[in-house]
Computed example of a mutant assay.
Amino acid sequence: MAVYTEVSFAEADTFLQSLDLGTLQHLEGCSGGIENTNYFVTTDQAPYVLTLFERLTAEQLPFYLRLMKHLAVHGIAVPDPAANRDGDVLHSLCGKPAAVVNRLKGKSELAPTAAHCTALGEVLARMHLAGRSFEMQQPNLRALPWWNETVPVVLPFVDAPQADLLKSELAYQNHVATLSAYGALPRGPIHADLFRDNAMFAQDLPEGQAPQLTGIFDFYFAGVDAWLFDIAVCLNDWCVDLPTGQADAERSRALLQAYEAVRPLTAQERALLPALARAAALRFWLSRLWDLHLPREAAMLKPHDPTHFERVLRARIAAPLTMAALFNTSPSTVQPTETLSA
Results as ranks from 00 to 15, higher is better:
Thr339Pro: 07
Ala324Arg: 04
Phe217Gln: 05
Cys94Ala: 10
Thr333Lys: 12
Asn102Glu: 13
Ala58Glu: 15
Leu326His: 10
Leu90Arg: 09
Gly87Lys: 14
Arg283Pro: 00
Thr178Asp: 15
Ala143Asn: 08
Ala210Gly: 07
Glu6Leu: 14
Pro62Lys: 14
Asp218Pro: 08
Ala258Cys: 11
Thr14Ile: 01
Phe157Thr: 08
Gly32Asn: 15
His175Asp: 14
Arg142Gln: 07
Ala12Val: 06
Gln25Tyr: 08
Pro186Glu: 10
Leu90Cys: 13
Asp44Tyr: 08
Val224Ile: 07
Tyr182Asp: 12
Ala319Asp: 04
Gly29Pro: 14
Ala275Tyr: 03
Met136Leu: 09
Phe9Pro: 02
His308Asp: 05
Asp20Gly: 06
Phe40Ala: 09
Ala247Gly: 01
Asn102Trp: 06
Leu213Thr: 10
Tyr172Ser: 09
Val7Ser: 08
Gln257Ile: 14
Leu276Asn: 03
Trp290Leu: 00
Lys302Tyr: 14
Leu19Ile: 02
His191Glu: 08
Ala298Pro: 02
Ala249Leu: 08
Leu185Phe: 13
Pro303Glu: 06
Leu170Asn: 10
Trp285Tyr: 13
Lys302Thr: 15
Pro189Trp: 10
Leu256Gln: 05
Arg263Ala: 12
Val41Asn: 09
Arg296Asn: 05
Lys105Thr: 03
Tyr259Lys: 03
Arg296Pro: 00
Asp225Ala: 06
Leu255Asn: 09
Gly245Ala: 08
Ser180Trp: 08
Ala261Trp: 10
Leu71Lys: 00
Phe15Ser: 01
Thr329Arg: 14
Leu289Cys: 00
Ala254Gln: 02
Phe221Gly: 10
Ala315His: 10
Asp159Pro: 08
Ala171Gly: 12
His175Tyr: 07
Gly87Asn: 09
His191Pro: 01
Val151Ile: 05
Val100His: 07
His191Gln: 05
Met200Pro: 03
Asp164Glu: 13
Val334Trp: 07
Tyr4Phe: 06
Ala99Trp: 03
Glu122Ile: 07
Ile231Leu: 11
Leu340Ala: 01
Leu129Gly: 01
Pro274Trp: 00
Thr214Ala: 05
Gln25Ile: 04
Phe9Cys: 09
His70Gly: 09
Thr51Val: 15
Glu260Ser: 13
Thr307Lys: 12
Ser8His: 14
Arg263Ser: 12
Leu104Asp: 14
Glu207Asn: 06
Arg103Met: 03
Cys239Ser: 01
Asp197Lys: 11
Gln60Met: 06
Asp248Leu: 02
Arg66Lys: 15
Leu16Glu: 12
Arg278Trp: 00
Ala2Arg: 15
Ala125Ser: 14
Ala277Thr: 01
